[in-house]
Amino acid sequence: MSEAKKTTNHDEIRNWVEERDGRPAVVRTGGKGGILRIDFGEPEDTLEPIEWDEFFRIFDENDLAFLHQEESGNGGQSRFNKFVERSNATS
Rank of each mutant, 00 (worst) to 15 (best):
S2A: 03
E3Q: 05
K5P: 01
D11I: 11
W16E: 06
W16P: 04
V17E: 01
V17P: 12
E18K: 14
D21E: 12
P24L: 12
P24Q: 10
P24D: 06
A25V: 11
T29I: 11
G31S: 13
G31T: 15
G33C: 03
I35S: 14
I35T: 14
L36P: 08
R37V: 08
R37Y: 08
F40P: 11
F40E: 01
T46K: 15
T46W: 10
E48K: 08
E48W: 00
E48V: 11
P49C: 02
P49K: 05
P49Q: 07
I50E: 00
E51D: 12
D53C: 07
E54S: 14
F55S: 05
F56M: 05
R57M: 09
I58T: 01
I58E: 01
F59C: 07
D60E: 14
E61H: 12
N62E: 12
D63E: 14
L64M: 12
A65Q: 00
F66Q: 08
H68E: 05
Q69Y: 02
Q69H: 04
Q69W: 02
E70N: 12
S72I: 01
S72T: 15
G73D: 13
N74E: 07
N74S: 08
N74F: 02
N74Q: 06
G75V: 09
G76Q: 07
G76M: 02
G76C: 07
S78G: 06
F80V: 02
K82H: 11
K82I: 00
F83C: 06
E85Y: 06
S87I: 13
S87G: 08
N88Y: 15
N88S: 15
A89N: 10
A89D: 10
T90S: 15
S91W: 08
